[in-house]
Design a binder for these strands. Sequence first.
DNA 1: CATGAATGAGATTTCATTCAT
DNA 2: AATGAATGAAATCTCATTCAT
Lengths: 230, 230, 230, 230
Amino acid sequence: MNRSSTSPAVRLVPATPRGQRTRQRLLQAAETVFGEKGYEHASIADITRAAEVALGTFYVYFPDKQSIFVEVVDELGARLRRLIAEAVAGCQGRIEVEREGLRTFFQFVARHRNLYRIVRQAEFVDEACFRRYYDLFARGYVAGLERAMAEGEVRRMDPEALAYCLMGLSDFLGMRWVLWQDEGGGPEHVLDTAMDFIRHGMDARPAGADTRSKKGTGKVRAPRSRKTTR
Amino acid sequence: MNRSSTSPAVRLVPATPRGQRTRQRLLQAAETVFGEKGYEHASIADITRAAEVALGTFYVYFPDKQSIFVEVVDELGARLRRLIAEAVAGCQGRIEVEREGLRTFFQFVARHRNLYRIVRQAEFVDEACFRRYYDLFARGYVAGLERAMAEGEVRRMDPEALAYCLMGLSDFLGMRWVLWQDEGGGPEHVLDTAMDFIRHGMDARPAGADTRSKKGTGKVRAPRSRKTTR
Amino acid sequence: MNRSSTSPAVRLVPATPRGQRTRQRLLQAAETVFGEKGYEHASIADITRAAEVALGTFYVYFPDKQSIFVEVVDELGARLRRLIAEAVAGCQGRIEVEREGLRTFFQFVARHRNLYRIVRQAEFVDEACFRRYYDLFARGYVAGLERAMAEGEVRRMDPEALAYCLMGLSDFLGMRWVLWQDEGGGPEHVLDTAMDFIRHGMDARPAGADTRSKKGTGKVRAPRSRKTTR
Amino acid sequence: MNRSSTSPAVRLVPATPRGQRTRQRLLQAAETVFGEKGYEHASIADITRAAEVALGTFYVYFPDKQSIFVEVVDELGARLRRLIAEAVAGCQGRIEVEREGLRTFFQFVARHRNLYRIVRQAEFVDEACFRRYYDLFARGYVAGLERAMAEGEVRRMDPEALAYCLMGLSDFLGMRWVLWQDEGGGPEHVLDTAMDFIRHGMDARPAGADTRSKKGTGKVRAPRSRKTTR
DNA sequence: CATGAATGAGATTTCATTCAT
DNA sequence: AATGAATGAAATCTCATTCAT
């Protein structure tokens, strides 16, 4: 139970274009079905039905249910990371990066309401895939934070720990106010609150001297060229 | 799939002491088995085997698999909340409360390494039970934070949003440094980093002169540069 | 393919008499079905249908198709060996033993026309079980032959090799004249021929007193020109 | 199940040399694969993979799985019969023929260790093919034996029954000492024992003085007592 | 209370064969 | 001739739940 591959498995690419199309159809269908029913309750038959191919066709492209699931998760993660990287590309300052990243994440969740269900299932389907999902996010985060620390924009602290703080915080807010919503001021309000917390939490001039002297140091950094890999 | 009861079902308590014992045995076995195999892969037979009772006996105490699972989750949550409440009872100041709460949580996770697996499964088994788990935590949190805000110890902000920030952050740190550990300075170091982030994040005097004097520890240990860029 | 257990697996005996009955019904049905359709073409459903129990009931008593098959083979072998042992018990002299054994075997084959099909399938289902079948026969044979040799009734020769000669010969005659029959004088005639061959083949006095008298014929041919079409 | 053709089907030979090569490759691959996995577990895909051609190519040369199997069996039988006929061609006397035939058979089995598996599978795939295999052997045998009986070299007895005796005996010895081997003096020793049994079994002078002197090797090694009681 | 036999729906997986290219 | 994608029937096995004892 929970065989787990340390690295994303090599995926055979079908020889013909027709095959490629079918494979894509299956992946798309799988994302939908896994999101709706959850991994355990999603049957291969559900997937092929959604993809409008015969049951046996599934096994032409994937050896089993786990494989296609892992691929779905990996792709979902890659897509989200790419999206955030793009959204954050033009930002000025780490705070802006954080806000933009968080906003993009909330949007993604709103559009892919099954993201949580899928990623969290991964923990039980393929532990390595699950960890990989967060690990890859953390790497980008860490790189960006280290740069910000080097430039004096963010207080010096363990960047990976900080990254997991920010990821956990985003994750829970997205769950509570995008997925569960109902009441509560909605994403925008929560985003403001979160940013208030985050800004102070990582500010390079937490309190005291800087602040006070803020006047003098007024110039503060001039963080150019963000290019946060994230 | 995922019938979800809005409120925790009423649980019958067996009349005889022998019955009570059997019921407890089943609950205990269920926690272990669910933690090890996950809800879907855990069979009633696994549970009764672990509890050393006959298969049919299960249905004397629980109407179905879902029920015992929900009860396991609810009890786990209650136990953890109680533990934290006790640990935090004697604390001075919100920061100390946070630190003690986080430490207690880490300890609990270390001792109940299947906590995450069980709680997260709940999302797919009984959505209401899952939300209840976090909601009950959040309530306690909110109450505490509101008090701290009233006393001017914590900056005024949406207490529920702040609660979810703190819960998410704890959750991810526990996952990364208690469950997955391997490298990284370990819970203590992470605890310090997290507290640094939290303190400043919610400090009532974000750039207050006091701060400095208030916490001697304020300087925050110099985090060995991670170089996690990897 | 062809997992093979070195020794006959331990068989759990059902707790209740009702269970025992069901188990026997399954074994009986399995023998019939395997004999008729062959191992590969016999489905578990065929067996449960023949036994008049539900499909799932099969798995209460046997972990898989292979297990019940192995048990069928083992029991078939045991039954046949017991039968032969009994038939041979009162015989005088090894020749009589051989004849009686052969006759009993032919009878058994006539009554269990699926014996061959079942045993031979074993080679592909569980190699160990297959060998065990012949090995257990051989042991009994060897013991008997050694005794006969010690008593000067049978010529001294490797008893195991002789046992396999006799087993192979019986096997093929049974196949040809009991199973395939059609023409050919039928079992009795073949039995006589076989006994003639066997008697001389293992006679302790290959060139005994008789021969001497026969001396006249002694010179015999000088057969060149083989060209045995064979 | 077990459609059986009464006579070997007519086989189309491909027009082009390239086609012929492909067909041969398939036959060769089939022999290997059937031998390794058994008929039922060998898939057409296994065969085409081993032959390094595409799946569809199979059906250019064979109408179905059964057909190629039957052809493999028929060819294997023909090859073995031809080999034995050649080996036996120059022999003097029936005994020598038997010995040479047996030796050749053992050699063939040693080199084609899957012979047994393949032939025996035939019983379940195509009964006619299976019988044909033995029948063709028996015919050659009978012809040779009748000649030897006519020449007074072999005792008069039903030649077909004798043929099946000899075939069964060879079959079992080959199985036990060539395929299973492990202990036991090995083919040579067994060959001597078998020949001792056979010679006396069919000798025209059942107790002829000659015999004794005829074969120096007659002494037969003293077989270590088995002690296999049972 | 406790037991364990029985059920049958449902899920995954295999594979011979067809067919369009 | 050769290819390889597509099919769908069939088979094995699991397991929550029921029920008679």
